[in-house]
Computed example of a mutant assay.
Amino acid sequence: MRSLGEAGRAAGGRRLFYVYLLTSVANPAKRYVGVTSDLRTRITTHNNGGSPHTAKHRPWKLVTYLAFTERAQAEAFETYLKSGSGHAFARRRLWPN
């Protein structure tokens, strides 16, 4: 398994896009789903208060991430996870119990 620093490129040098799930360390009931092409930097931004949507509930910990080779696929999956059926799927399969 590659580290996050090495995971930015797929085989063949293609850029990867990540859908990631965060949980607030301070308030575990607070969760966040996002998409990025630079996961390590994006988590640092969240934890430094650089995102208005997550600044109040920091620090954040990474729960899981999924990598996609196409930006449109990653964005569509993020949108799905934020929908009603996507919330149900994530509760069953992606968020810890």
Rank of each mutant, 00 (worst) to 15 (best):
R2G: 13
S3C: 12
S3H: 13
L4S: 09
L4F: 09
G5F: 14
E6I: 06
A7E: 15
G8A: 03
G8C: 08
G12F: 10
G13V: 10
G13R: 11
R14W: 08
R14L: 14
Y18I: 05
Y20I: 03
L21T: 02
L22S: 03
L22P: 00
L22M: 04
T23P: 00
T23C: 11
S24N: 01
A26W: 03
A26H: 14
N27A: 15
P28W: 09
P28A: 13
P28Y: 13
P28L: 06
A29I: 12
A29D: 13
A29Y: 04
K30H: 14
R31T: 13
Y32D: 06
G34S: 00
V35R: 01
T36S: 15
T36R: 04
T36K: 01
D38H: 11
D38L: 04
R40Y: 11
R40K: 15
R42D: 05
R42H: 09
I43G: 00
I43W: 00
H46V: 05
N48A: 08
N48P: 00
G49T: 07
G49P: 02
H53N: 11
T54V: 06
A55L: 04
P59W: 05
P59S: 03
W60P: 01
K61P: 00
L62Q: 00
V63P: 02
V63T: 09
Y65V: 03
Y65I: 01
L66C: 07
A67Y: 02
F68H: 05
F68T: 05
F68Y: 11
T69F: 00
T69K: 07
T69I: 09
R71C: 08
R71K: 13
R71L: 15
A72S: 15
A72H: 10
A72T: 14
A72C: 13
Q73V: 01
E75V: 12
E75F: 02
F77E: 03
F77Q: 04
F77V: 06
E78Q: 06
T79C: 04
T79E: 02
Y80A: 06
Y80N: 03
Y80F: 15
L81V: 09
L81P: 03
L81I: 04
K82V: 07
S83G: 12
G84P: 06
S85H: 10
G86N: 11
H87C: 06
F89H: 13
F89M: 11
A90T: 03
A90K: 00
R91E: 15
R91V: 10
R91T: 12
R92H: 09
R93F: 10
R93Y: 14
L94W: 05
P96N: 08
N97S: 13
